[in-house]
Amino acid sequence: MVLKKTTKKKTTNYKYKIIASGILLLMVIIIGFAYKTRFLSYLGFIPEKPYSELSKEERKLSNEHIEKVLLHHDEKALGFDVSEYQSVIDWEKTYNIDESFELSFVFIRATAGNNKVDSRFKENWKNAKRRNLICGAYHYYRPNENSIEQANNFIKTVKLRKGDLPPVLDIEKLPKTQSIANLKLGLRRWLETVEKHYKVKPIIYSGESYYNDFLKKEFSDYPFWIANYNFWTKEIKDEWDFWQFTENGEVEGVKGRLDLNVYNGSVLSLQNKCIK
Rank of each mutant, 00 (worst) to 15 (best):
R130Y: 08
F80A: 09
N124E: 00
E75C: 01
E99Q: 15
V117Y: 01
K116Q: 11
D98W: 06
K116W: 11
D90T: 13
G136K: 05
G136L: 10
F105H: 04
K116M: 09
K126H: 00
Y95R: 11
K126A: 12
G79H: 09
D81T: 12
W125P: 00
G79S: 09
S119P: 01
N96D: 12
A77T: 12
E84T: 06
R109H: 04
K129I: 02
E99D: 15
R131T: 07
E75H: 15
D81H: 13
F101V: 03
A110W: 00
G136D: 02
I89F: 05
K122E: 14
R109C: 06
S100L: 12
N96C: 08
Y95L: 10
E102R: 10
T94C: 15
A137Q: 08
R120E: 10
N132L: 11
E92K: 14
I108G: 01
I97D: 05
Q86E: 15
K129L: 14
N96K: 10
N132T: 10
D118P: 04
L133R: 10
G113W: 01
A112N: 01
D118K: 01
R130H: 07
L78H: 09
V82Q: 11
A77L: 12
Y138W: 07
N132A: 12
N114T: 13
D98A: 14
A110E: 03
N127A: 05
S87I: 06
N124H: 12
I89C: 04
I134H: 02
K126V: 09
A137R: 06
E75F: 10
A137H: 02
K129T: 07
A112Q: 15
